[in-house]
Design a protein around this nucleic acid. Structure first.
Lengths: 157, 157
DNA sequence: TTGCTTGCAAAGGATTTGCAACATG
DNA sequence: CATGTTGCAAATCCTTTGCAAGCAA
């Protein structure tokens, strides 16, 4: 797909939208950031590098980045938008730890073919899907077991 | 599981929460309503039967109904809560038409075992999952094809 | 100049909460 | 009487929009 910055500028040009320093700033922060960042986290990151930037600009730019095909919006169901890169990885689903928030990306070849078949059974043309698995990761499970063993009665968490 | 009204009242009692006319009203409307209704739709239904009821009461009561194990909250990603009964049907996933909103319930035995395996591969203990397939249903596809054939250039929709 | 971009504040939409009035055991 | 329940309005949270000021071609 090529250099994301190029792809982004190309997308803007093709749509008759101007490039700008701020837009490039947001794109760079997004590209450098870890995956699945929420809008709020992303905004904090952006402000660190570019203190004057407004929240609206980050929202607007993330939309452009998505339209350019560089990002996907994801929704863990916690009431905030999250983003991940789309240009440097194949499609995948997510397995999220409900205790620590850790997120594992799942290769979903098998799931996808099953989904396609299910849709087909009902005559639907599949356009997209959302799948999120929630559970407890090994680390958190160990901790829980540990604290359960040592915790006094009535003690919280 | 028994009569939902009984289950509900039992749940309230066991939690030291009072029953009330309004709560029963909401429960009945929910039980009679079609599945996957949004909060707004449910509220309209409730108001039809019980004009003075406040939105907050419906929110509060639906939470109780979920806690009683009678309803599941579902999230089609359109920014509103939806509900479906949980007591009279096995777990399933959803296939939603992006054009008309029709929703088909999918028996997901195969999907579930795959999901369990994926979680297991990463050492996770699975607690729950969300899976939504989006597509175009047969009816809408036919209509689209029809209108595409007969539509004049530049005409919308 | 002309039009796009930006930050800020205000608006929006969904949901929750505070509270005084109210009901009910 | 004592508590729990309710409607209303206000408050939250996340996101989008309006707008005047700033910039760039």
């Amino acid at each position: 797909m090529g250099d994301p910055v190029e792809v982004f500028n190309g997308h803007l040009r093709s749509r008759g939208i101007r490039g700008s320093k701020r837009r490039e700033e947001v794109l760079k922060v997004f590209l450098d950031a870890s995956s699945h960042l929420s809008m709020a986290e992303l905004f904090l990151d952006v402000r660190r590098r570019c203190p004057g930037m407004g929240l609206a600009t980050v929202y607007r730019t993330m939309r452009l980045i998505c339209e350019a095909g560089l990002a996907d919006e994801i929704d863990f169901g916690d009431g905030t938008k999250r983003f991940e890169r789309k240009d440097n990885q194949p499609h995948h689903d997510h397995l999220i730890c409900e205790s620590c928030g850790r997120c594992v990306e799942l290769d979903d070849g098998e799931i996808e073919s099953l989904q396609a078949r299910l849709a087909d059974d009902h005559g639907f043309t599949l356009t997209r899907h959302k799948m999120y698995l929630f559970g407890i990761c090994p680390d958190c499970r160990r901790q829980e077991e540990g604290s359960r063993r040592t915790r006094k009665v009535g003690e919280n968490r």
